[in-house]
Design a protein around this nucleic acid. Structure first.
Lengths: 128, 128
DNA sequence: CAGTATCCAATATGATACTG
DNA sequence: CAGTATCATATTGGATACTG
């Protein structure tokens, strides 16, 4: 497995190349929410549990740099920005679904029904 | 996306759960080499470019802990250990192939033919 | 052969306060 | 609203030396 240089950065192999772009804790949660719709900064912040402003901003900047998402700024007061997937971003979504499905399978082997947990959560949100 | 607790560890979502087990720089290179055969510690060390002893050992311990690989020790002098995939490890290989294939596709969009690079490398190894 | 142990630098992440 | 700046901590990973 030879090294590859792209944009002056070195990658050890194709998996490394992908995981540098969509790996880590926060990239998948952002992309997952953008898969069906455009969202604002504040919507992402509200929707993604545990994410800090710092990590959300960093994640967005990296996804932009790698041309996976694009940002649209409406120069108004108060400011309004929207994030959406690029063509490359849309190419990557099926892979995230594959990773997610593998996760659901592995959880099932551990006796956990994650889809049921999501439904429970939605019910509780509505109660409040 | 609710949190999940498995073996006293918290995961934010199914993708997080998978990437904690096979993400990072070194897990995929190890699993990729074990996908077709059992290998010894020293063989993995020789085959994986750039990996340090420390990272190889750490990676192997984590993959064992997560029941993705298993270790067989032959109590001889000198020592002889073999690593191979478990059933769970074999379940995960197709996902690594998917990630890898996505990487090959993305590289192609950047004008890089990685398969050709591998062939070049093999030729050069034979020359020496 | 197959690891451990130790030291050190770089990166990741959270918390908090501040701003155009 | 959508960020930045700063401080502090934890984790990651390389280099080197040592060991049953």
């Amino acid at each position: 497995m030879p090294d590859v240089f792209i944009d002056n950065q070195r990658f050890y192999n194709p998996v490394d190349y992908v995981l540098q772009q969509i790996g880590g804790t926060w990239k998948a949660p952002v992309l997952w929410r953008l898969r069906t719709k455009t969202l604002r900064y504040s919507e992402l912040e509200k929707d993604i549990p545990h994410i800090s402003q710092k990590m959300l901003t960093k994640t967005l900047r990296e996804l932009e740099k790698d041309n996976i998402i694009e940002k649209k700024v409406y120069a108004k007061v108060p400011p309004h920005t929207e994030y959406s997937l690029t063509a490359k971003g849309k190419m990557i979504i099926p892979l995230i679904e594959s990773i997610r499905n593998t996760g659901l399978e592995l959880m099932k082997e551990e006796g956990i029904d994650y889809d049921a947990m999501i439904k429970e959560e939605k019910k509780n949100v509505l109660k409040k």
